[in-house]
Design a protein around this nucleic acid. Structure first.
Length: 509
RNA sequence: GCUCCGGUAGUGUAGUCAGGUCAAUCAUUCCGGCCUUUCGAGCCGAAGACUCGGGUUCAAAUCCCGACCGGAGCACCA
């Protein structure tokens, strides 16, 4: 029987199945449908509460954008709440930047991911204390006075430290001593009991609170006992009733650690999805603290320097939020570490921006040439090559600018067309002579077509991720402040400031 | 050293849980052609991948084992 089936073709199987059970055939076809957008989140059908939890020690980078976008995208998909939570509980080693809180909110807004609620951990530390005390009462936590090396040695040997089985009263008293100052920095931590023999040493009795006397940039010296990430995050996720956590693979152990706390408290842990590290070809790997140092050293002009992989920098260059969103959604949420190229983001952005961007002439490395003959004083050029939305009027005349590179390698007798203007023949190093105005001449003679800039052009400096170009551009760009335009044969730019020179930021070709 | 995770075209990604129509999806990139008064856009075409080795099975990208490669954690950082 089996042999008989194996000998038949898939088409024959299908026919047979159709006779036997047509409903199963439908099911087969259903399965083939490709899923669009983000993969389904298990258990999300009743709505979700999700959060993005940055440390505000700089503005969001493109890596943060992924977290902001994917979280908010899921909330959009299933309904529910999107939270921003500032995990700013280290006043020393990961000292928060007061300005950065606002930067996150601004960039979220721009990324079309307005949070439904904003939580700042440093302002809520007082609410964590009763939970710590409850944990002590339940025997799930203890005050440990080992120094770091001692504890590490014991932990690596899978042995409990002497403080682990102190009485409840002792622990409470020590905890009060942490709070009221009788214990100093480094003298004690509160640990969550896990399994001291857990096969993974990273899980064993982790620290939940430590003493820090350095004032916090937001709340000053309001607290001297500060939670560590695993405690703060675990508790806050429960308080906010977070349903799904998206977190980096680097925090994979956190779930295992935090589950012990949840167990002690009788809470249920949210669902967790992990994703791998993201690297961008054009920027290499970057960290906020590294960028911060480079900025402070004067290597960059600021957090929105077009050479930087921050959200504000790409915004300044004229990348659009919806392009970024589309790109991030297509990246998905895989656990593999990925290395992406900005080219893919650029391609996405180009599709959105190309139909909307007016065309402008920008001549880099300009050379002034003279054209002998009766050339018009003004010409008109379309604002867009295929979408009819009008023209721009340009001053023309006998002297215009062209790119040095368009002249190089040409000699007397060579002909070319100045786009939307005239056909010329080279007669000298910087001299040309008019042939005629007809674009058909250029077409028939297959002349190279170059662009040019009018005599009344303005000085322009284009700041790009890879280099800075200087040149001149038609004066109309003075009306394009904050808009994205295409400099023909150059690329898309956002006009960044009016001045002398006008500055533009380069987006992409 | 201990522990965890991953490996589909150049880059991402779908498919892997529930093995079969997967000679493998989509996007981007690259190449060729067409079109175009931009080196942009558009159109057409092409190239390009299941890390390796065993095993299970009629059948393996999919399940199992091992190797290799890559990433991460073992903080009083986030």
């Amino acid at each position: 029987m089996l042999k008989e089936i194996a000998g038949q073709s898939p088409q024959q199987w299908e026919k047979r199945l159709e006779q036997l059970a047509p409903e199963l055939l439908e099911e087969l076809e259903e399965k083939k449908e490709p899923v669009k957008g983000l993969p389904a989140l298990p258990g999300a059908d009743g709505g979700v509460v999700m959060r993005f939890a940055p440390n505000p020690n700089g503005p969001p980078t493109l890596g943060s954008a992924r977290g902001i976008i994917i979280n908010s995208e899921y909330v959009k998909k299933y309904g529910g709440k999107f939270l921003i939570r500032f995990d700013d509980t280290d006043p020393v080693k990961k000292r928060p930047m007061p300005e950065a809180y606002g930067w996150y909110l601004e960039d979220c807004e721009w990324l079309l991911a307005r949070p439904d609620q904003v939580i700042t951990a440093s302002e809520r530390v007082g609410q964590y204390y009763p939970i710590a005390e409850e944990l002590i009462r339940r025997g799930g936590a203890y005050v440990c006075q080992c120094n770091q090396e001692q504890f590490k040695a014991l932990k690596d040997a899978a042995t409990a430290c002497p403080h682990r089985d102190q009485s409840l009263e002792e622990n409470m008293e020590l905890w009060r001593m942490m709070l009221d100052g009788r214990l100093g920095e480094g003298e004690a931590v509160l640990r969550i009991k896990t399994d001291i023999k857990h096969r993974d040493p990273a899980i064993r009795d982790w620290a939940a609170f430590r003493i820090v006397t350095t004032p916090h940039p937001i709340v000053g010296d309001r607290y001297r006992v500060w939670p560590l990430l695993d405690f703060e995050s675990a508790v806050e996720d429960h308080l906010q009733q977070v349903t799904h956590i998206l977190r980096g693979k680097d925090l994979m152990d956190s779930e295992t650690r935090q589950r012990y706390l949840y167990q002690h408290m009788g809470w249920t842990y949210p669902r967790v999805v992990h994703w791998g590290r993201i690297k961008i070809h054009q920027f290499g790997s970057f960290s906020t603290s590294k960028l911060r140092k480079a900025i402070e050293a004067g290597e960059y002009t600021g957090w929105d320097d077009p050479r930087l992989p921050t959200v504000r920098a790409v915004r300044r260059r004229g990348l659009r939020a919806d392009a970024l969103r589309k790109f991030m959604v297509e990246l998905g949420v895989g656990e593999t570490d990925i290395s992406i190229s900005m080219d893919t983001i650029y391609a996405e952005n180009r599709k959105l921006v190309d139909p909307e961007a007016d065309r402008r002439f920008f001549v880099w490395d300009p050379v002034e040439i003279s054209i002998a003959g009766a050339v018009p004083d003004r010409v008109e050029a379309p604002l867009h090559p295929t979408i009819k939305r009008g023209v721009r009027s340009l001053t023309a005349g006998n002297r215009v600018f062209v790119c040095r590179s368009d002249l190089e390698g040409r000699s007397s007798g060579d002909r070319l067309r100045l786009k939307d203007f005239c056909n010329v023949e080279i007669v000298g190093p910087k001299e040309a002579r008019l042939i005629d105005l007809d674009p058909d001449t250029a077409r028939k003679q297959r002349l190279p077509i170059i662009h040019w800039a009018p005599p009344d052009s303005l000085a322009v400096k284009v700041l790009g991720p890879e280099r800075t170009d200087t040149g001149v551009a038609e004066p109309g760009i003075a009306c394009d402040l904050n808009r994205v335009v295409q400099f023909e044969r150059y690329g898309f730019v956002r006009i960044d400031s009016l001045g002398n020179p006008i500055t533009a930021c380069f987006a992409h070709r």
